[in-house]
Design a protein around this nucleic acid. Structure first.
Length: 479
RNA sequence: GGCGCGGUAGCCAAGUGGCAAGGCGAAGGUCUGCAAAACCUUUAGCGGCGGUGCGAUUCCGCCCCGCGCCUCCA
């Protein structure tokens, strides 16, 4: 197997991935801010993180993965107040929606899903540590980080802040800061705002401190991998580095991976442009979770992904092709024995697939290896040159593939029902379908094609596709 | 302006100094009672201009275009 290479934002280069502790990966990912439903752009990043985690596990690493939910910030405070709810009540709704969405998209739950407001004490302790080392100063009840004291500031985002002055783009009138680039570790409460009473005074945490505090609490002072969307590189991750490394004197994370953004029709997604979508928006239009997952996963994560409905349809059809192949493998009748060269062919595809993912999660390259094999295997099957003894190797590869991509299982309808989409109408049971299929076969035998076609059409209207195969068996599937 | 992605067929997209993967779509065909699935065939002057090479989509320079970040943002 090829060595795993990952693009590290810190170095700007592809680097061989070697965790600190052999066989174990400690990964922290920035999750959503639960002030509203997450959108498909968020899920582009979360699917990337999922694929990374799944691939590492598949490669035999023990994965310790922590994802946070930011459940306190300005938007949340404002929205909760507007809704007449307290912060917890308000964010619970969207946290639950996020968990449901993840399940629907096949995003595996990390070992820990943690919330900022459950870790106020940890943040306070970290701030105190920074206070002791004089990386902070207080002003009007808030605590700020003194960037001037951290020499490596900007090493992740390669940003040079010396030119940034308080002014038009920098909010300098709400708080008193020594320097415009300094950021808040702890914010003094504004009138009427929810606050925590702590050893460093009343208030609420700044945005960045939560990730430093929680990541180090669960994963130690040096993480193997830290990921998020590209927009988080600055200032969020840069500030995490400043806080964490100032406190510990150790590198905070060894590999920083950032997912590029998703665009819609070539433009930034925004509510004002009317091109802003949540998962629920797409499911309500009838698109399948597997199609969206495939669409998000098939474009390598460091490339901007241009989301379009045409693209989603393409993804739907691509998944269909793979499922057809998986079905054929499962249900087809093949001659006994093993075909000369076939297992080698399958093994080659397997290796190429793995090589693709090892190359900084090049999913497009990996998929090409799979589709190549699908074609070759179909050709062999058509010719009767694919045998029973070859099934296992092919199946093994598909399982490997699906351990990462997770799109083969035909469970879209069930998933949608969890979110309340798709008709919960009493559809045809398997037995009903079998009966109708048998009726059609009987009609065909009598060469009553009109009757047979009528049954097939009725089934099609109810979302069941019936197909005759070469070996005489009839197979059906739900659309 | 600084930093960073990217411009490859109708659409999505990989890739390499030496005849340009893969998927979707479209057209024609094979198979089928008809379909579906599958298979076959067709569908690329690699943003522009220069440069270095026997040879450049791939390296270098300049330019054009799209997108992102530069303290709300996955």
């Amino acid at each position: 197997m090829a060595e795993i290479q990952l693009h590290n934002t810190l170095s700007g280069k592809l680097e061989p991935f070697v965790p600190q502790k052999p066989g174990e990966v400690r990964m922290y990912t920035c999750g959503p801010t639960v002030y509203d439903y997450a959108h498909i752009g968020n899920y582009r990043t979360f699917v990337f993180q999922d694929i990374l985690g799944r691939f590492l596990k598949l490669r035999g690493y023990k994965l310790k993965h922590v994802m946070n939910l930011t459940d306190v910030d300005d938007r949340i405070i404002a929205n909760a107040a507007a809704a007449g709810k307290n912060i917890r009540e308000y964010t619970d709704t969207f946290a639950q929606a996020f968990f449901d969405d993840c399940k629907t998209l096949g995003i595996e739950a990390p070992e820990h899903w943690i919330r900022a407001t459950d870790h106020i004490d940890d943040m306070v302790k970290l701030i105190q540590r920074l206070q002791k080392k004089t990386f902070t100063y207080s002003s009007e009840g808030s605590v700020y980080y003194r960037i001037a004291k951290f020499p490596n500031y900007g090493k992740l985002s390669k940003i040079d802040l010396t030119g940034i002055q308080a002014g038009a783009r920098v909010d300098n009138d709400r708080y008193e800061k020594e320097s415009a680039r300094d950021f808040a570790l702890w914010k003094a409460p504004k009138p009427g705002e929810h606050f925590w009473e702590t050893a460093i005074g009343p208030g609420r945490p700044g945005w960045h401190i939560e990730c430093s505090a929680m990541a180090m609490k669960y994963l130690g002072e040096t993480l193997d991998i830290h990921t998020g969307g590209i927009d988080l590189a600055f200032p969020h991750h840069e500030n995490e580095i400043a806080q964490s490394e100032a406190a510990t004197g150790k590198p905070f994370a060894r590999y920083w991976l950032h997912a590029e953004h998703l665009l819609v029709d070539g433009e930034k997604m925004s509510k004002s442009l009317g091109n802003f979508f949540t998962l629920r928006d797409l499911f309500a239009k009838g698109y399948k979770p597997s199609a969206l997952r495939f669409a998000l996963a098939s474009v390598p994560y460091r490339k901007q992904l241009n989301f379009t409905f045409a693209g989603l349809t393409q993804a739907t059809n691509s998944v269909e092709r793979l499922r057809n192949f998986a079905d054929r493998l499962k249900q087809g009748k093949f001659p006994p024995g093993k075909q000369e060269g076939m297992s080698e062919r399958i093994f080659k595809a397997h290796v190429e697939f793995d090589d693709g993912l090892s190359d900084d999660l090049n999913t497009a390259r990996a998929l090409a290896a799979l589709f190549d094999l699908v074609r070759d295997a179909n050709i062999a099957m058509d010719k009767g040159e694919f045998r029973q003894g070859d099934i296992d190797a092919a199946q093994l590869f598909l399982v490997f593939f699906d351990s990462v991509f997770s799109v083969l299982e035909d469970n879209d309808a069930a998933k949608l029902q969890v979110l309340g989409y798709g008709s919960a109408e009493a559809g045809l049971s398997d037995a009903d379908i079998e009966k109708l299929v048998a009726d059609r076969t009987a009609a065909k035998k009598k060469r009553d094609f009109a009757a047979a076609d009528r049954i097939r059409r009725d089934l099609a209207d109810r979302g069941i596709i019936v197909e005759d195969t070469k070996d005489g068996t009839v197979r059906w599937k739900r659309k």
